[in-house]
Simulated scan of single mutants.
Amino acid sequence: MSDSSWSDRIVGERMTVDQEFSSRIQSSEFSNQQWSLVMTATTFEIENPDDPERARMVANTDQVDQIIPELENVQAGMGAMAGESGGSSSGGGIVDSIKGALGLGGGDDDHEAQLKEAERLTQEYADELQARLESNGRWDAVREAAADEE
């Protein structure tokens, strides 16, 4: 086994994909700060790393569900900094926030939609990252390093 994990070896490619992916985030329902939280809760894995034909980078979003409620706090904080009032056209307001915190609001549907969007976007990101590694001729080395770590 090597000194660093395969994921440590692809930091440069991730930075490039981050920049290229920013336009997709801007057209999504997530702000940049919200996307950063989603990415912090996401890990990337290589499925079937010993099989060159079936190896695939995947986004593991198991932890994202835990940060979904925080996404609303980030958005609320951004609105407050921009001088928005507490009652936005999307509902909002302190009563809705309290209801949501108590699990009494209609937030579960919103949370499920945000989770699905996060899962979709993080997998698109993983696909882009794999494509970048393939185009740079680094995919096989990264895949093999991941297989060695198993």
Rank of each mutant, 00 (worst) to 15 (best):
S2D: 14
S4Q: 14
W6Y: 13
W6G: 02
D8N: 08
V11E: 11
E13V: 00
R14V: 02
R14G: 00
T16E: 14
D18E: 09
Q19H: 13
I25E: 00
I25K: 01
S28V: 02
F30W: 05
N32A: 13
N32I: 09
S36A: 11
V38A: 04
M39T: 08
A41Q: 01
T42F: 01
T43I: 05
F44Q: 06
E45Q: 04
I46D: 02
E47L: 11
E47S: 02
D50G: 06
P52E: 09
E53S: 11
R56V: 05
M57D: 03
M57R: 02
A59Y: 00
A59D: 00
N60K: 01
N60D: 07
D62T: 11
Q63T: 13
V64Q: 00
V64I: 06
D65C: 10
Q66Y: 10
Q66E: 09
P69Q: 12
E70H: 11
E72Q: 11
N73A: 10
A76C: 08
A82N: 14
G86W: 13
G87Y: 15
S90L: 10
V95M: 15
I98V: 07
K99V: 05
G100T: 13
L102F: 10
G103K: 03
L104M: 14
G105A: 14
G106P: 07
D108I: 04
D109N: 09
D110I: 12
Q114C: 11
L115C: 07
L115Y: 08
A118E: 02
E119V: 06
E119A: 08
R120V: 01
E128C: 01
Q130L: 02
A131M: 02
